[in-house]
Amino acid sequence: MLVQGAPFDFGAEAAAFSAAAGGAGAVVTFTGLVRDLSGRLQAMEIEHYPGMTERAIAAIASEAVERWRLVDALVIHRYGRLGPGEPIMMVATAAAHRAEAFAAAEFLMDYLKSRAPFWKKEVTADGADWVAAKDADEAALGRW
């Protein structure tokens, strides 16, 4: 698990994770990018709670490993000021079969969204606004 300000190389991380996942039959990866649907976004500023962030991610990842008997799981999440299109975070899961790898990756994403202490702020020419949490994101936890 990595919580960092620096950019990461998604391809290199995925390749290294896969190479180290001995015995796995399936690797699923997901990367979240800074979204700019309006074309007006200048930057995304991500604040986090050092200490709690690492604890929360470790707890979520170890639950995923246990529930889906994963060979391994990887979470990388950035903080600081990011530009449109930049990777914010990635998860990777390695399991015996794809069903477990996909389910565990979805579980990780749902929990990271609502239970890892990050807060996003969108900066445009008009000013900066905190991104509001969506009810649907909280509701998504119910399926697990």
């Binding site: 709670y49 890892a116 991104v131």
Partner: peptide
């Protein structure tokens, strides 16, 4: 994470924040 009715006895660090928007 805790509830607002949680006791503070023995607690060293209390953090307040809006609902999280990670991922």
């Amino acid at each position: 994470l805790a509830d607002f009715d949680a006791p503070l006895a023995g607690v060293r660090e209390v953090a307040f924040f809006p609902p999280m928007t990670g991922g």
